[in-house]
Design a protein around this nucleic acid. Structure first.
Length: 291
DNA sequence: AGCTCTTCCTGAAAGC
DNA sequence: TGCTTTCAGGAAGAGC
């Protein structure tokens, strides 16, 4: 499923060939995952693609209206979330169309930008220039940019489980289930630990682990489990480096203990019970709250 | 505040 | 074999 490294890989691919292109036409299949399909069909034709960027797990395509009235028309962004099975690819318009392809953007160079999504958990929306800052601010910090100090603030003060916070897009934008589990293993922190109970050293380690895991995953062009492919339809390779994710019952690469899977924050969470010690079981309120 | 449950959807895998 | 059931999961919303 696409998380930050996968989305970053797609964005890099699109950024290499889309800027400068004009969208000539929009064709739509199923539209239940599109905020305003009518607006999509009416406003995109004739716009020029200025840039493609990433906001957490969102792909943002910066569009400039063209034509005589373009100076009067507000710029806007085509914002796409790939959900679990979304694929955004560029193809020549005559290329075979895979099943579940629901959006086609015809470009002025004979290619099409296509959106394919088996489960349609993705989203497509248009965000006007005037609201893009608000959209961005509702998301949390970029995991590759957040400072240690801000990381302390966002995690150290929270009594939620650390895994839940890693997955919370309003805390960190872009980390999903795979990279949360891999980062926690790397940092040797159990997913069910309460964030505010972690030491400064543990939080600092986690901050660095998230960065390292994501950076390595981007270098390997993401993890292809499920349906993920990049903008050219190629798979990533980071799934070959997974240490815990989907390795339940297999030996830990560090200590050979069997990897376990539990549900934390409603998600499958994979961890090594020896390397990532469980939080102390707390039934009665033995613990004294910090003043 | 933070947790659990539900909803969306399809295909793979498990169950019978 | 073939049909039916279960499950997975990102995000949002409800309810506790």
């Amino acid at each position: 499923m696409p998380e930050l490294p996968e989305v970053e890989t797609v964005v890099r691919g699109l950024r290499a060939s889309l800027p400068g292109r004009t969208i000539l036409d929009v064709r739509l299949g199923k539209t239940d995952f599109i905020d305003d399909p009518v607006a999509l069909g009416e406003r995109l034709p004739g716009t020029r693609i200025r840039d493609v960027t990433r906001l957490g797990k969102f792909i943002s395509i910066d569009l400039v209206p063209s034509g005589p009235a373009s100076k009067l028309v507000e710029r806007f962004y085509l914002v796409i979330h790939l959900g679990m099975t979304g694929q955004l690819t560029t193809r020549h318009s005559g290329d075979p169309v895979p099943p579940h392809t629901h959006v086609f953007f015809a470009l002025d160079d004979g290619r099409e930008l296509r959106y394919t999504d088996i489960r349609r958990f993705g989203r497509i929306l248009l965000v006007p220039e005037s609201r893009i800052a608000l959209f961005r601010d509702r998301l949390g910090a970029e995991p590759l940019e957040i400072t240690l100090e801000e990381f302390f603030t966002r995690f150290g003060s929270r009594r939620a489980r650390v895994k839940a916070l890693l997955l919370d897009q309003a805390v960190l934008r872009g980390v999903g289930n795979i990279y949360a589990d891999e980062s926690l293993f790397h940092a040797r922190i159990h997913p069910a630990r309460i964030a505010s109970n972690l030491t400064q050293t543990q939080l600092a380690t986690l901050h660095q682990s998230v960065r390292e895991i994501l950076t390595t995953a981007i270098r390997l062009r993401g993890s292809s489990i499920s349906d993920y492919v990049d903008s050219d339809g190629n798979r990533g390779e980071f799934q070959l480096r997974h240490r815990v994710y989907q390795r339940e019952g297999k030996p830990c690469v560090r200590c050979r203990q069997k990897i376990r899977r539990v549900i934390v924050a409603g998600r499958s969470s994979h961890f090594c019970p020896r390397c990532q010690p469980a939080p102390r079981p707390r039934k009665g309120q033995h613990k004294v709250r910090k003043p």
